[in-house]
């Protein structure tokens, strides 16, 4: 275990990761032509970002593609160093003590990477456990416990290449918990999973925060998932926080409304559209339904469509007056 010198941490800094004014610039070299000298281009991936990840809570980071979510996660996990700003974990300088930090964190990404496909679940966990200094009976016990948590006991001795996407994701979660981290960074953990598996993973994430008191940073593309899981949410755009608040506060800010989709007979379609136009395109769902009933237009299907996260975020981005910062 690596040792660390604390810079007199205050009580407020215990039990949380605190980022203050983090900046991350990437320098890209652009070459125009085979023998031309490369020109340097600075990309400002994250600009002046301040946030906190308390233990026992789920903190969400939302943003459209390219907003700086992944760079933020990797900086907070001390995987990449910030260009400027300060980052502390439990009051300890996380940039200077990155080895100490690595013992206390783990990252779980969506997708099928980060696992050895030719190895079984047990063999994978045994290897990853050894990277954190675990061995012998305690490691075996830990592996059995984790496989039970992610419900992979029966598939424990099957090579990962024969796993389904959902099973691989569950094994990823077990891998992320192998060192019993204080903080867990989850980058779109339910991406591409079916509803049942995604629900199971969300339950697991909640349990980790509420019962095991882990500090969780979650990025997601699903607005419902963020609402269901996150205690506090940061919205990023172009590397800056443009909105932040609790679920309730942001619900108000998002002001999104699910859309009611009504399917009518093709023969009634034109009649329905003409009717709506005539009535001034009434938007209230009950008014539309009343109107259809009144004119005896048969409804063939009804469904509720949630807006895409991108759509909601784009709305916030395009309306600066709605931003809380």
């Amino acid at each position: 275990m690596s040792s660390v010198v604390r810079d007199e941490p205050g009580n407020q800094e215990e039990g949380k990761i605190i980022a203050r004014h983090l900046v991350k610039d990437y320098i890209l070299k652009e070459k125009k032509g085979l023998f031309a000298r490369g020109q340097k281009k600075v990309i400002h991936a994250v600009k002046d970002l301040s946030l906190e990840i308390p233990q026992g809570k789920i903190t969400g980071v939302l943003g459209i593609n390219g907003a700086g979510k992944t760079t933020t996660i990797r900086m907070l996990a001390s995987v990449i160093a910030p260009t400027s700003g300060s980052l502390t974990m439990n009051g300890v300088d996380a940039v200077k003590n990155h080895l100490w930090v690595k013992e206390r964190i783990n990252v779980i990404s969506g997708g099928e990477r980060n696992l050895y496909w030719r190895l079984t679940a047990k063999e994978n966990l045994r290897y990853f456990g050894s990277l954190y200094g675990l061995s012998g009976a305690s490691l075996n016990e830990k592996i059995a416990d984790l496989l039970e948590t992610v419900d992979l006991e029966e598939a424990a001795d099957i090579p990962v290449e024969r796993y389904s996407k959902g099973m691989k994701q569950r094994l990823q979660i077990a891998r992320g918990l192998i060192n019993d981290p204080e903080y867990l960074f989850m980058d779109e953990p339910t991406l591409g999973l079916d509803i049942v598996i995604a629900k199971e993973i969300r339950r697991l994430v909640q349990e980790l925060a509420r019962e095991k008191k882990k500090g969780i940073l979650l990025t997601t593309h699903y607005i419902r998932e963020a609402e269901e899981l996150c205690d506090y949410i940061y919205v990023l755009d172009k590397g800056k926080i443009i909105a932040q608040g609790t679920r309730e506060e942001l619900k108000e800010l998002f002001m999104y409304k699910p859309q009611l989709l009504i399917q009518v007979k093709p023969s009634d379609d034109q009649e329905y559209l003409a009717l709506l136009k005539e009535e001034g395109e009434k938007t209230a769902d009950e008014q539309v339904l009343n109107l259809l009933m009144e004119h005896q237009i048969q409804v063939e299907g009804l469904s509720v469509q949630e807006p895409e996260l991108e759509e909601v975020l784009m709305k916030i981005i395009s309306q600066p007056d709605r931003r809380s910062q």
């Binding site: 996990a77 995987v79 013992e103 964190i105 990477r113 980060n114 050895y116 496909w117 990853f128 990277l131």
Partner: peptide, 13 residues
């Protein structure tokens, strides 16, 4: 190439 380097780099090993 196999996508497993990041787990090694993330660890203190």
């Amino acid at each position: 190439r196999e996508g497993t380097l990041e787990t090694l780099l993330l660890s203190p090993a």
